[in-house]
Design a protein around this nucleic acid. Structure first.
Length: 303
DNA sequence: TTAGGGTTAG
């Protein structure tokens, strides 16, 4: 539209457009914009270049992201952080870490963006040693006291590595943990079998100024298998909030009913769902088996 | 006016 109107896009335009393409994973349009930039080279600056790296990487086109990065004369900390996060985003943890080490060698200062990324990679690969090294950097630089991404990253990392004690400590040491941090800790408690602690935290969250999100509900649901009636009330609340339209919430509800030995409720819910994905089916079939409904399980498997 | 990082179910 801007082109049809006779205006030439500038750097600001490209940054906005490329960011949109990244969020929407609009590969074709992003590539077109990249081609167009070569004809108006004056609009290419470091902001645009960094957006290009991020655009290609988040679309899974790591080679293109790397080409743009390698063509950058003086990559700054954002260029490095973008490329590293793209490697992690695509599951290329080793290459991402190699680039992180290169960034440090080139004199980049570890900031909250690098820390957030590397903590995520440490969580995904369950690398307790690496994450703890990053944690010590966080303590030395006081990053964790200020940045919520770092706080949540630490909680998530420790929980994924099975260290609920250290996840809890990171949470307690944060000045004012925000919702993401609460959700990460609650999810960690549930995953590591501390349902009681998860419910206590969830109650505290409800009485705070923060409002649990659909992700918080999906994290906590598993903790209610031991207290079915409360779990059913949570289900009502989820419906009132309109969160049951999210497929991952429906799946978490399916799981809750299966674990609570309320398999018929689970089956009813499955029938009411508009869409089923592979998780819905897996949950349903696992529920059949654990309830001793083997014939139904076979029937669903062969449908 | 512009770029990068965290939480979700089996």
């Amino acid at each position: 539209m801007i082109l049809e109107d006779g205006f030439a896009p500038n750097g600001y335009t490209y940054v906005a457009a490329l960011s949109g393409c990244t969020n929407l994973r609009a590969e074709r349009i992003g590539k077109e914009l990249h081609g167009r930039m070569y004809r108006t080279e004056e609009s290419i600056n470091s902001f645009v270049t960094n957006c290009l790296v991020n655009f290609y990487g988040k679309c899974g086109l790591l080679k293109s992201a790397r080409l743009v990065f390698d063509g950058t004369l003086e990559p700054n900390s954002v260029t490095w952080a973008s490329l590293i996060s793209c490697y992690f985003h695509c599951g290329e943890y080793q290459e991402g870490l190699t680039m992180f080490v290169s960034a440090l060698r080139r004199g980049m200062i570890v900031n909250e963006f690098f820390v957030g990324s590397v903590l995520g990679a440490s969580a995904a690969t369950k690398s307790l040693k690496l994450g703890m090294q990053i944690h010590s950097l966080v303590v030395k630089s006081s990053l964790g006291r200020m940045d919520q991404f770092v706080v949540t990253g630490l909680i998530n990392f420790y929980a994924k590595c099975g260290r609920l004690d250290l996840a809890r400590r990171s949470f307690d040491e944060a000045e004012a943990p925000e919702l993401h941090a609460w959700t990460a800790l609650i999810g960690g408690c549930v995953q590591l079998g501390s349902g009681r602690e998860a419910i206590d935290l969830f109650c505290k969250l409800l009485s705070s100024d923060l409002k649990p999100s659909e992700r918080t509900y999906s994290s906590v649901l598993g903790a209610f298998a031991d207290v079915k009636e409360v779990g059913k009330q949570i289900h009502c609340r989820i419906v009132k909030l309109g969160f049951d339209s999210f497929s991952f919430i429906s799946n978490a509800l399916l799981d809750f009913y299966s674990k609570s030995d309320l398999f018929e409720e689970s089956l009813n819910l499955f029938r009411e769902m508009k869409e089923h994905d592979v998780v819905s089916w897996n949950t349903l079939i696992a529920g059949c088996v654990s309830s001793g409904w083997y014939e139904e399980a076979m029937r669903f498997l062969t449908l």
